[in-house]
Design a binder for these strands. Structure first.
Ligand code: FES
Ligand code: FES
Lengths: 134, 134
DNA sequence: CCATTGTGGACTAATATTGTCCTTTTTGTT
DNA sequence: AACAAAAAGGACAATATTAGTCCACAATGG
């Protein structure tokens, strides 16, 4: 029940990107130094953000990464879902349990509702909002 | 971002206890068999529930465990908090980060709000409610 | 042609979770 | 008193997940 360190790296990275002038590329190395994130590990993380369509990359000498869309249209949910592929509070996925995940099961129903509530909250502020109100 | 298997064991155990006649003790062995949970692991888990004041125990020949208060007054939050000691979506606990957890930080503020929303949802139904509406 | 920067994959290390075993204490029963 | 049932407690082992590292390769601009 905890965001992983990798997710935190991703959040910090996205905030760094959101702070940069719109459209400018930042290099992985630069970000890793600024945010004190192991460079090679950060690279793997960025891959996930690329796949999720949150950042775009440019190889070569003046390359780097930048947001794929405006900071106003990215929220923490986007980042968290990108990194922790299946956000599932719910346990009842492993097969062979006494209580198989039937639509009606009250436990899984409650967990699902709680998860929704959480995600909805996280959708309320964009990266842009967050930078604004510090 | 996931409830652990141990937490699920605890939830299933609490439901089993809630189903039993009020005040009756069930043995760890019985529960472990009913719910297909490794007995010795279950014992460790029960310790946490005892510490949290959710169940009470009785040693000796007709002993076992039972709910420490009515099933109507126990929710999933109680169980989750008992087992996963510090429910903290929030990452910014580890020391020495760029973004120390200042009251104002927008990320930690958002995560905290989301966590609250989640916990609030989980508080809405008691074990009794859950057994009722299957 | 070369330095810079991202891509990809294999591998290792660290940590957390899950599971097991064994010994002790309490309690009711015989 | 002796015994069996059950919880308490703690050490240890097995797995799984997370985090971090390394190295060869591909694109890009100068
Ligand atoms: S579906 Fe798993 S506890 Fe009900
Ligand atoms: S306090 Fe950690 S991201 Fe802000």
């Amino acid at each position: 029940m905890q965001i992983t360190r990798q997710t935190e790296y991703a959040i910090r990275t996205m905030l760094e990107l959101a702070r940069a002038p719109r459209g400018e590329f930042l290099s992985t190395r630069y970000i890793s130094e600024q945010q004190d994130i192991p460079e090679d590990f950060l690279k793997k993380t960025l891959k996930l953000l690329v796949l999720a369509g949150l950042i775009s990359t440019q190889r070569g000498v003046h390359g780097g990464i930048r947001l794929a869309r405006p900071a106003g249209k990215i929220t923490l949910v986007d980042i968290i879902e990108a990194v922790e592929c299946n956000v599932a509070l719910n346990v009842c996925l492993a097969p062979g349990y006494n209580c198989p995940n039937q639509p009606g099961c009250p436990v899984s129903r409650n967990l699902a509702r709680a998860q929704q509530a959480m995600l909805n909250e996280l959708r309320k502020e964009s990266l842009e909002d967050m930078l604004g109100d510090q």
